[in-house]
């Protein structure tokens, strides 16, 4: 892989990393289990490695942003995630930050186009 491709790949990863939490939180107003969340994100065009999503969910859960419960009533136990009250507040803050940044960056980029 060329140096250019390397740089682009790394920067794209960094750019994505910052917004990934927001994307995941946005989908967890509804209760989801891991695989259904992957499907939902995929449906919206966000491809995410499952081995990235699961540790992320676990981290968010540990931070208290999610409420995780095991549902054992189905044929197989599944862990469901949903935004906690703290998660909703954090999501709203992050969303505002994202919109502000988006506007600022968009304006800057428009100026040089």
């Amino acid at each position: 892989m060329s140096n250019f491709d390397d740089i682009i790949k790394n920067l794209q990863q960094e750019l994505r990393k910052g917004t990934l939490v927001l994307a995941v939180l946005s989908q967890l107003f509804e209760k989801h289990y891991g695989y259904s969340l992957v499907e939902t994100l995929n449906k919206h065009g966000l491809q995410i490695d499952q081995n990235t999503l699961y540790p992320l969910l676990r981290r968010l859960d540990k931070q208290g942003l999610l409420e995780a419960t095991w549902d054992v009533s189905e044929t197989r136990p599944r862990k469901y995630y949903k935004l906690s009250e703290l998660g909703i507040r954090v999501y709203n803050e992050l969303k505002n930050t994202y919109y502000n940044s988006h506007t600022v960056i968009e304006n800057m980029m428009k100026e040089v186009e």
């Binding site: 289990y33 891991g34 695989y35 259904s36 499952q50 676990r58 095991w70 197989r76 599944r78 862990k79």
Partner: peptide
């Protein structure tokens, strides 16, 4: 916990 989560994920995917 992690093992159970991952097992659930793999089985969900296989079912699909």
């Amino acid at each position: 916990e992690v093992s159970d989560e991952l097992r659930s994920l793999f089985l969900d995917q296989l079912e699909d």
